[in-house]
Design a protein around this nucleic acid. Structure first.
Length: 258
RNA sequence: GGCUAGUAAAAUGUCC
């Protein structure tokens, strides 16, 4: 299509180039997306914020957080005000690359620019710290979130509970789980999976079992990750009979082992 | 002067 446009003397503009870059991302042709961007510049077409957002996406998919941050710098240098999603996407790049401190820098930049973080922004930061086992830092972000009046959602809580699991803080995981309940935030299968993993990690197979039962009475269907967590908790507790029983139950429910 | 085209993103286990 682009070739046809050229042959007919129709010029590509910022919209067509941006759309084209996005198509490349969808097709997982990340290098091509970058080529399109370069060509756009060569043709003297000026990128706008949408283009930059897409370019940041390219770097997110490539796992290149430094490049994502550079794009953000470029945006700022041009005196353009980045959007919430721009910052959040850069934070997500840092999260994927295991760079919580870099994510925090972007977050601070965002606040300095007077841009209000969204629940997704906070959750990405929480996840970044959680992955590194820095649960206290993750909690700090969570408190910030509350202080600034941002709504917490099921993903926020699941991230936090998972952060507790990685840090070996099962009691804190339980606390967060009840806090979540108080806020009328309904847990889903991921939340329960994280919670069961936290109990398992803490050596509490009874608790893991209890939540396994609870999730089902709440209409939450266990998946292979749930069973994996549960069986692991039995294994750690030397409960091989229970482990075997859980394994059989899993198959009886049509959930296949992986 | 009005309308109209393009972009996302955050959570879970085991083993390796």
């Amino acid at each position: 299509l682009v070739a046809e446009m050229r042959s007919k003397g129709i010029e590509c503009n910022v919209h067509t180039y941006s759309a084209l870059m996005n198509v490349c991302i969808k097709a997982n042709e990340l290098e091509l997306a970058q080529d399109v961007y370069k060509q756009m510049l060569d043709e003297g077409c000026t990128p706008n914020l949408v283009t930059y957002n897409i370019l940041i996406d390219v770097y997110v998919k490539k796992g290149q957080w430094e490049e994502a941050v550079k794009v953000l710098d470029t945006i700022e240098k041009q005196g353009v005000q980045a959007e919430v999603r721009t910052y959040t996407t850069v934070i997500s790049a840092c999260n994927k690359s295991g760079q919580p401190e870099q994510a925090l820098k972007v977050y601070e930049k965002m606040l300095n620019a007077g841009v209000k973080p969204s629940a997704t922004t906070y959750t990405a930061l929480i996840s970044a710290y959680g992955k590194k086992g820095q649960v206290e830092k993750a909690l700090g972000i969570f408190k910030d979130m509350i202080r600034r009046g941002c709504e917490r959602n099921v993903i926020t809580y699941s991230s936090l509970i998972s952060a507790c699991e990685k840090a070996g803080r099962w009691e804190m995981a339980l606390e967060l789980f009840s806090k979540m309940h108080k806020e009328n935030c309904k847990p889903n299968v991921v939340t329960y999976n994280s919670l069961i993993a936290a109990c398992s990690h803490g050596g509490h197979w009874e608790k893991a079992s209890e939540f396994f039962e609870q999730m089902q009475t709440q209409g939450c269907k266990p998946d292979s990750i749930t069973y994996s967590g549960l069986i692991t908790s039995f294994e750690r507790g030397g409960q091989w009979r229970r482990a075997l029983k859980a394994f059989e139950q899993m198959q009886a429910q049509g959930c296949h082992p992986d």
